[in-house]
Amino acid sequence: MGRYIGPKTKISRKFGECIYGEDKYFERRKYPSGEHGNNRRRGKRSEYFIQLIEKQKAKYTYGILEHQFKKLFIESSRKKGITGELLLQFCESRLDNIVFRLKFAPSRSSARQIISHKHIMVNKSIVNIPSFRLKPGDKIEIREKSKKHPVILESINKKIGIIVEWLILDEKNMFGIFRIMPKRIQIPENIKEQLIVEFYSK
């Protein structure tokens, strides 16, 4: 399969922030795992290391493999605009991310599973590809047969967080609209995209 399916708290501790959403275990220990924990002495981090960590953080956050992520970077670097912002826009416009942002799933990994099991429709057609790229104006909805799916219902009813301003959600009818492509300031993820651009530009 190739995706990371290990302990998520361990990854969050590696980056020093909760990248997978609410995590009570992370709140107890916000430092990297290891024998010496928070008391471990660390030398000065190189510029390359800092850039690598930021790239890894973005990959784990969006659940994208290295090959896919590099392809997104190459595509964003060839388009007119700010490369780092375009890269994040491509990540945000993936179907698995949008399903997560609309609260149809509690996490991006859960969103990928829901999509793969054909519970999601885009513009009235079933789409089972998590990496499917959406365009402004696209309508994302839960299939009629899937509207009582326990994971989807629980996620919607939890009402955790807010819907980002570039999406429209009709909670009652279980559909959302990808209104506009988000600007960098509208993307809530704590990612320093310029470091990623510098990493791949070497």
Rank of each mutant, 00 (worst) to 15 (best):
T9P: 07
S12D: 08
K14E: 10
C18M: 13
E22P: 13
D23V: 07
D23W: 04
R28S: 10
R29S: 13
N38K: 14
R41A: 12
E47Y: 10
F49N: 12
I50M: 03
K55Y: 00
L65C: 09
E66Q: 05
Q68R: 01
F69D: 00
I74K: 09
E75D: 14
S76T: 06
K79M: 11
G84S: 04
G84D: 04
E85L: 08
L87K: 00
E92R: 05
R94S: 08
I98K: 01
F100S: 13
R101I: 08
L102N: 02
A105E: 06
P106H: 10
S107Y: 05
S109E: 15
A111M: 07
I114R: 10
H117N: 12
K118S: 15
H119A: 11
H119L: 09
I126G: 10
P130L: 00
S131I: 00
S131K: 01
R133Q: 15
K135D: 11
P136Q: 08
G137E: 01
D138G: 03
D138Y: 05
E141Y: 04
E144W: 04
K148G: 08
H149K: 14
P150T: 08
L153G: 03
I156K: 06
K159V: 07
L167C: 00
I168V: 13
L169K: 12
D170E: 10
N173I: 04
N173H: 13
I177S: 11
R179Y: 14
I180A: 11
I187F: 01
I187S: 00
E189Q: 04
I191G: 00
Q194I: 05
V197F: 00
S201W: 04
K202F: 11
